[in-house]
């Protein structure tokens, strides 16, 4: 049972790393600021799911609160940029 689960999660890790690289390509060449915020949003949420899989792979369940904190602060970055763009539209 143990080797079956570990092998499956090890194979699933490669697809996650590939999709992280594709998200980073969009973040580096995004034409406007909104596309970059969108890319780092998706990158952060997928990284939060990836850290759960890694904490199963390491056999160390104490590592799970990192994922909760990462989710909440990525959302905070999103809201900051949205408030900045909207406040600039309101004042001018």
């Amino acid at each position: 049972m143990e080797s079956w689960v570990i092998n499956f999660l090890t194979i699933a890790m490669f697809f996650y790393i590939a999709s992280f690289l594709l998200y980073i390509v969009r973040l580096l060449k995004g034409p406007t600021i909104s596309d970059m915020v969108l890319a780092i949003d998706a990158l952060g949420y997928d990284l939060a799911a990836f850290l759960i899989i890694l904490s199963i792979l390491f056999r160390n369940p104490i590592l799970i609160p990192c994922s909760i904190v990462l989710t909440l602060w990525i959302y905070a970055l999103d809201i900051y940029v949205a408030k900045y763009l909207e406040a600039k539209e309101m004042s001018e």
């Binding site: 909104s34 969108l38 990525i74 949205a82 763009l85 909207e86 600039k88």
Partner: peptide, 12 residues
């Protein structure tokens, strides 16, 4: 979050 950034992008 996606609704917030879409609304800000549309308004600005």
């Amino acid at each position: 979050g996606s609704h917030a950034i879409a609304r800000a992008t549309y308004r600005a």
